[in-house]
Write a protein that binds this DNA or RNA. Structure first.
Lengths: 211, 211
DNA sequence: ACATGAAGCGGACTCTAGTCCGATTCACTC
DNA sequence: GAGTGAATCGGACTAGAGTCCGCTTCATGT
């Protein structure tokens, strides 16, 4: 995602490329203070009792802030999760854009794709309930996150480098396989271990990258 | 799904094969009457204002039934959607199990797979908001429906007939691509037409069926 | 410093999903 | 056809997400 937790409402500019994008106009000092308080409180509460088990009232109370403030800034529960995921996600974005191959530039598209799948799967699994909330709190939430835009772009690029047709749709298919809900299903209900899911998905990625 | 809308609570038996499964013990006459009333009312309301725009209170009121009755029988809003989808879904199930090739038995696995994708996509698209509700009303709802079990079984069978490895996971990937939320995204947000999505997904299915 | 208007704040309020349990109705027996 | 136990009914109740709008606080120009 793109760190744009600052602007009054997120998701305003459609065409925005998911890159840095700092403090839109000028964040008022009380707003900044409250933003930090909320993030800290949310992180603490989510870590303790799981994202799903925490109410927005609790976050607001714990942060010493009104509910209106919470919603003004983060939009909804999913937006709060997105904000918390920001940091980790940006780290992976950096590794993809400028890190070592095969994740970063310089390797074959197919190899980069496999590396991406493994890395992204790991990230999702490590923050499962946060990602789950960010993707399912509202219908259609998944495609609205800046993160999704970024990874979609990346996968489309790699697929077109590999020369397949239907690049857009295939990228969506691959990302759907990496959706939090799906990953949770494999890990929790099917009791698969992360390793095996990862290698099976690598196979899927390669199959999809075949012209 | 399997027409097991009768039993006090659905989703009790895990190992159930998604086949016929008629009236569990003995449906009381008032229960039967109310079930029909509820289904009729829900169908009417959903058709008029869309599944998402109708509250459970309205369904109950329109059916002349208490809310407790609604929830006792259908579990939650998703369960109500599942019950309404039942009929159409069973029709497709019949065509898959015993209809003409390539959808029914007798064709090559790859051809059956492509036919299934097209038919299922069409069904989802035709009942989009109902399927959406059945899959997203509760977290994990998608994998709990009998329908999902049935189609999963079918796809796994075809994939293993085609000789691929990772049959289970690949089946899940293919079905994830056919999830209501994903289909809605392609149709509504990306403004693609059903034809093109169908043929692109046929390509995906074939790629996944490649060993 | 002070005025001023815009941005931000917060908590009461609404809306809806889902639960609970006393009252009711049913199927079955004698 | 009255008795009986269990399944079913239904509406009041709870809980949590998200909205609304009058009040407060900030940044800026004078």
């Amino acid at each position: 995602m793109s760190g744009n937790v600052n602007g009054p409402q997120s998701g305003s500019s459609r065409a925005e490329l998911p890159v840095i994008d700092v403090g839109v106009v000028h964040e008022r000092s009380d707003a900044a203070r409250n933003r930090l308080r909320v993030l800290a409180a949310a992180e603490r509460l989510f870590a303790t009792r799981g994202a799903a088990g925490v109410t927005m009232d609790e976050v607001a109370a714990q942060a010493g802030v009104g509910k209106g403030t919470l919603y003004r800034r983060f939009g909804d529960k999913g937006g709060l999760a997105v904000a918390l995921l920001d940091e980790r996600e940006m780290e992976l974005q950096a590794r993809v854009l400028g890190g070592q191959p095969p994740l970063g530039p310089g390797a074959l598209a197919a190899d980069r794709l496999v590396a991406f799948v493994a890395a992204y799967l790991e990230l999702v699994a490590a923050q499962l309930d946060l990602v789950l909330m960010s993707e399912t709190s509202a219908p259609g939430a998944r495609s609205r996150t800046g993160a999704h835009a970024f990874w979609g772009q990346h996968v489309r690029l790699l697929l077109s480098e590999a020369g397949v047709g239907d690049v857009d749709l295939r990228a969506d298919v691959l990302l759907a396989a990496l959706a939090a809900e799906q990953v949770r299903h494999w890990l929790d209900e099917d009791q698969r271990d992360l390793e095996r899911v990862g290698s099976a998905l690598a196979g899927v990625a390669l199959a999809l990258a075949q012209p």
